[in-house]
Design a binder for these strands. Structure first.
Ligand code: FES
Ligand code: FES
Lengths: 162, 162
DNA sequence: AAATTAAGGATATAAACTATCCGAAAATCG
DNA sequence: CGATTTTCGGATAGTTTATATCCTTAATTT
């Protein structure tokens, strides 16, 4: 059970977009350079964010991406699900139905107890991600990233933001 | 992020083994038939359980698998990790290090804040699985599975258990 | 001695992930 | 207007992982 690397990319890109001044956009090219990522492939991750309505886009020179909502109104789960999909990590193929002792045409009233436990764990994972807002991340980063690096990074970003 | 189907197989097999009388073994063949699974491939999952010391084996006719510990001493996480591996679902490739604004040779003091959140979610998932014991599952199943099916299943199993 | 079993290696197929390329449509700018 | 830049979607290809089967070996029972 491994998340795709695009999850890391998307979260970091959102953190950068969260620091963008009102009304400005940042391009795929800039985001790829900043994180050292393949531009074309990162583009797919950003398209996922766009389809999930987490970011807004505009075309042409000085175009790119910006957040569609305030960072306090976006949580980790939304970003992760945008690129990773909303499918549950555990899928029950109902192997209990293959029990040869079963009466013909017998139908289960409840989902399997095994699956329920696995789904409960899945929900605990989602719940943790749902509770962390993008604004929380930005807050932590602004405390932990050295002030000079923080400043120069956004200077770098603003120079490229249309 | 999808778990392999072997997770479902392993959990159901352990639930059956938990109902086995002291000192008896159940073969791959029987477990595969009972759940309608490919015998050769299920065998790989059972080998994983064996390597994780969750089950004990014996060879020859009347050989097979039995639990290495009491069902109350085995939890879901152990079974899931045995077949799925212990790797964390999120792997940080440290893309923050690619920031062109970084000073040469700068070294981070902490793991990235993004990764810490993802790992926290991972731990919440693991914690849920850790809290559910195999004996809890058997308890739930014995309540939910119709008594007649429950009885006939273990009759079927005992007829094949060496 | 014959049959049965787990274990592990080799191999093959299918699916998912990673990555790149290209064309179309839209927006900017000179 | 025309050239450039951008997102978007489709097509494609390489790599890795998951799924599945086959076969050999060694241990055990009958
Ligand atoms: S039948 Fe799918 S988890 Fe039990
Ligand atoms: S650098 Fe890997 S999660 Fe931030």
């Amino acid at each position: 059970m491994i998340l795709k690397s695009q999850v890391e990319w998307a979260l970091h890109c959102c953190a950068i977009l969260a620091g963008l001044p009102e009304g400005r956009y940042l391009s795929t090219k800039a985001l790829a350079e900043l994180h050292g990522l393949p531009k074309e492939y990162l583009s797919k991750a950003l398209q996922s964010l766009s389809q999930a309505s987490l970011v807004e886009t505009t075309l042409g020179p000085s175009g790119g991406y910006r957040l569609a909502r305030a960072p306090s109104e976006i949580n980790f789960l939304e970003i992760v699900e945008a690129v990773e999909g909303k499918a549950l990590s555990f899928t029950c193929t109902n192997i209990r139905a293959n029990n040869p002792c079963r009466a013909e045409g017998y139908c289960d009233s409840k989902p399997c107890a095994v699956a329920r436990v696995m789904w409960e764990a899945d929900e605990a994972w989602r719940d943790t991600l749902r509770r962390v807002r993008l604004s929380d991340l930005v807050g932590t980063l602004s405390e932990e990233v050295p002030a000079e690096l923080w400043r120069s990074t956004f200077e770098w970003v603003l120079k490229r933001a249309g």
